[in-house]
């Protein structure tokens, strides 16, 4: 699962997968703006066949949190 999240993030932010760590956030990834965040959300939803809520979208502010939220969503 982690691998798939990283693939999506790499494609959306146009960065190398290796650069993504637990701390990756809009502060460390330059291209992560509000429009790209929207792209990230729809790409993750498509990848994991889930629908994220407003609250979850707002919470997904770094890689670690994204992992947590996706894990929770896909276990249900």
């Amino acid at each position: 699962m982690e691998n798939r999240i990283k693939d999506v993030m790499a494609a959306v932010f146009e960065i190398s997968k290796k650069k993504i760590s637990d701390d990756s956030s809009p502060d460390t990834i330059k291209s992560w703006d509000s429009l790209k965040h929207m792209n990230l959300v729809v790409a993750l939803e498509e990848e994991f066949k889930i629908q994220l809520t407003d609250e979850e979208i707002v919470e997904m502010i770094n890689y670690q949190l994204i992992k947590l939220i996706i894990k929770e969503k896909t276990n249900k």
Binding site: V8, V12, E14, N39, V42, A43, E46, E47
Partner: peptide, 12 residues
């Protein structure tokens, strides 16, 4: 194609 796949392929 998934959106993320389109993003990557487009770049290539």
């Amino acid at each position: 194609l998934k959106y993320s796949e389109i993003l990557s392929l487009n770049k290539e």
